[in-house]
Design a protein around this nucleic acid. Structure first.
Length: 445
DNA sequence: TGTCCACTGGAAGGGAGGGCTT
DNA sequence: AAGCCCTCCCTTCCAGTGGACA
């Protein structure tokens, strides 16, 4: 069939050139329960006020104000579990600094901070879960100071020393105070060590005009144990710990966002309370509370309901959990999929607890069947640990005395759903139905 | 109390891939 | 084109481990 393109009529929701009604039409005509921008319910949205974080905002602002006077603020380490507002507070202060810069430009007075041009305060935010290498972090910081594509540090190819020198030169081009935020810092340290922190924390001794301050954000209080003592002391000049939100605080946060996101009467009684209570069970995670409210509303919209009720919230809870698992499985490399597949198949065959050796022999059978060279057992040990970290399996080291010491492995996902999902992967199509009852098939045991 | 098993997990290094410099 | 750098994925080697058992 010839491709005919999408004509203007389609866009208006009229019948397509094939004579069928446009697939989006019915959805576009249905009423949205959101008042406007649904991103208000996304964790990345930074509201005008952050409920129950005034104290942390003030503390951090009192440290950061030094930058506005042209001096170097102390380095800060911020700790707190997921969804406790760490990133939101840092982003909030970034917005406040930018607002101050704008007001300053408009008034052209620069009265309050007259000795230093506050336009020269630079805020560089790096998420170390995304950029998790020494090179990547340095490159990203350095590239914040150039707009010309030709002058950008390439994403690979330069020696580290050159990247570092280039970064220093760019910062030194004019007198400025650079505040570098390293979010999810523990991920960077775990993966690439502390050399990037070593360089960044001693950079001030090599700068003449400019100054650099670091704000590290981490979920893990213990990650500083892996740091070189010099880095640890330079980095932790100030420390802040963000406590988890309780259910009442989460309810306030949700109520605040809900006021902006919905018309009155859209949310049923107890919807925000339930979202808050469910999220409070998970160490007071505001991100989870907001996701629950947003997904509940989306489910209500799809069901063509005129309001959101607690049933939608329970559905949303299940959906979020399932989506997380499916996403995790879908993005696994092929060999990890085969390891998980072999664990699930053996569970299907009644084997509840497995050892590394058993999983490895099952995996080897599957690899050969799918025409791939199996990886070594050492490598598979690492893949098993990764699956454990993703929460797809439970693996704990256990000693069986004379029968050795190994991991005891159990799956922690719905077996048949995930088996079906893995079987959708084209690259391992040959192992599909490996465990069928056909007499010609071998069975994993 | 020493032995033994079946691994665990750290360290070192190979090599492929992507890109820069000379 | 050759030499170099960095990252990623992987292998190889090997010391260490917990607890049942003789």
């Amino acid at each position: 069939m010839k491709y005919r393109g999408v004509g203007p009529g389609w866009l208006k929701g009229e019948k397509s050139m094939t004579g069928q009604e446009n697939v989006f039409k019915s959805y576009m005509d249905s009423n949205s329960l959101f008042k406007g921008d649904r991103d208000i319910l996304r964790p990345s949205y930074v509201p005008e006020e952050l409920p129950h974080r005034r104290e942390q905002i003030n503390d951090l602002a009192s440290i950061m104000v030094t930058a506005l006077r042209g001096n170097r603020p102390s380095n800060v380490l911020i700790f707190g579990k997921t969804g406790t507002g760490k990133t939101a507070v840092v982003r909030y202060l970034e917005r406040e600094i930018n607002r101050l810069k704008r007001e300053n430009q408009e008034s052209e007075l620069n009265a309050e901070f007259s000795e230093f041009d506050i336009d020269k305060v630079e805020y560089v935010y790096i998420n170390c879960e995304v950029v998790d290498t020494h090179y990547g972090v340095m490159k990203n910081i350095g590239n914040k100071f150039v707009e010309d594509w030709d002058e950008q540090i390439p994403f690979t190819g330069w020696p580290m020393e050159k990247v570092y020198e280039s970064l220093k030169d760019r910062i030194e081009e004019e007198k400025r105070v650079v505040v570098i935020i390293l979010d999810e810092l523990d991920k960077l340290v775990t993966k690439s060590g502390d050399s990037v922190l070593y360089h960044l924390s001693k950079i001030n001794s090599e700068l003449v005009k400019s100054k650099v301050s670091l704000i590290g954000i981490s979920n893990n209080l213990k990650f500083t144990e892996f740091l070189d003592p010099r880095v640890k002391s330079r980095l932790g000049e100030e420390k802040m710990i963000f406590p988890p939100y309780n259910a009442d605080q989460l309810k306030d946060i949700l109520a605040d966002r809900a006021n902006k996101a919905f018309e009155p009467d859209i949310l049923g009684n107890d919807v925000t309370s339930l979202c808050a209570a469910l999220a409070a069970q998970e160490h007071g995670d505001a991100r989870r509370a907001l996701d629950l409210l947003r997904v509940s509303t989306e489910i209500a919209e799809r069901d063509n309901d005129s309001s959101v009720n607690t049933n939608h919230v329970y559905k949303a809870k299940n959906k979020i959990e399932q989506d997380c698992v499916r996403e995790a499985v879908n993005t696994l490399p092929t060999h990890s999929k085969l390891v998980l597949y072999s664990i699930l198949l053996m569970h299907e065959n009644g084997r509840d607890k497995l050892t590394t050796g058993e999983v490895y022999s099952g995996y080897k059978q599957l690899s050969k069947k799918s025409g791939m060279d199996p990886l070594t057992q050492r490598r598979i040990t690492d893949l098993i640990s990764e699956l454990d970290m993703l929460g797809l399996i439970n693996a704990r080291v256990k000693s069986f005395g004379r029968r050795g010491r190994t991991k005891e492995i159990q799956s922690s996902v719905p077996k048949s759903d995930i088996i079906d999902l893995i079987e959708e992967d084209k690259s391992i199509e040959a192992v599909k139905n490996f465990n069928s009852h056909s007499p010609k098939q071998t069975t994993l045991m």
